[in-house]
Design a protein around this nucleic acid. Sequence first.
DNA 1: CCTCGTACCGTACGAAACGTATGGTGCGAT
DNA 2: ATCGCACCATACGTTTCGTACGGTACGAGG
Lengths: 188, 188
Amino acid sequence: MRLSTTSYLVLGMVALRGPSTPYELKRATSRSVGYFWNFPHTQLYSEPERLAASGLLAVDLEDSGRRRKTYSLTPDGRAALREWLAAPTPEHFEMRDVAELKLFFNEAGSPDDDVPKLAQEQIRQHEERIAVYEEMVSRYGSEDWARPRMITLELGLEMEHAALRFWTALAAGTIDDLRREREERDVR
Amino acid sequence: MRLSTTSYLVLGMVALRGPSTPYELKRATSRSVGYFWNFPHTQLYSEPERLAASGLLAVDLEDSGRRRKTYSLTPDGRAALREWLAAPTPEHFEMRDVAELKLFFNEAGSPDDDVPKLAQEQIRQHEERIAVYEEMVSRYGSEDWARPRMITLELGLEMEHAALRFWTALAAGTIDDLRREREERDVR
DNA sequence: CCTCGTACCGTACGAAACGTATGGTGCGAT
DNA sequence: ATCGCACCATACGTTTCGTACGGTACGAGG
């Protein structure tokens, strides 16, 4: 069976807390590790079931009252967790930011200038951020950050300035690139 | 029809570039706006189709050679984009970071200390990062960052210290909380 | 007691996203 | 002229998402 990151999150959480019910896992993750790996709470009901089916968790059913399942780690589960922890980690992380998206399209404008500008306030905030980024870049030095597809901000100490350079460069450059590309096409 | 963020990304991109084929969109997004909103390239084939079905894009089929569809913005599409840009933006962004997850479970250890520690080098990097975060926090001040469920790091100028405080606090505190919770239960 | 309200807890299910795998197309090099 | 490779498009099975609903305990107020 194929294990996703969410699977390991469950495994890790059960290892951490000992035998747990889905609801307990939900409470324990929501304000901690959930920040690094977000998912709907329904996964905490379905995922342990999958893991139990593969023998990585053991189930214990409540005999009375509320239907409730308590999951605990099996030796196999512990081994899987251990293996995952030991395995090399991808050097990128993913992010999805609606606000930055909007700013992107706003800055870019549309061919006939018909896309509405965002509120002044939002733009001001954006500019402040850019300024902060630039200051940070100058503090941490600069480097090439380009990466193929998929998320891809550098991790570790590199993270800060890679991310910041990225944002800065994006706001400063890429939009011009797109404009240029468009004008070239329009000439033909 | 329900529009997702990806829908608006397509709309915005077509507004930006003018009439485009999916492949052109793919190239244009992959190294720019795709960083803020990642998705598989197949979406750039299916999503415009959906949008065309709702009349937000117009399709133009190539008559010869390679089967190719060129999409362009309709007035309705432009209106939808405009509406989205004008609408209030959620103040959070999402992230998914496997490395931070691993560090979390590593630091936490397991009840019987049977989960393997990560390599020294990874831990060193983590500690360096924490140090940087703490320095930044002290530069930008501090504030409460707690948030309900769902990703939720503050956006804007707040972003840096909220995110940094979060990481710092997480590494320093939450794990102890979980340990404590576990021990309490074990006593009973 | 006993009901009613409310916070707590669990799951079903349709819709969307994902990602791999595959197959066609054109163009330049040999 | 054909071969090879980069370019481009889509099908389709799997996973994830998130909403919406339904049951369960427990305490407050009658």
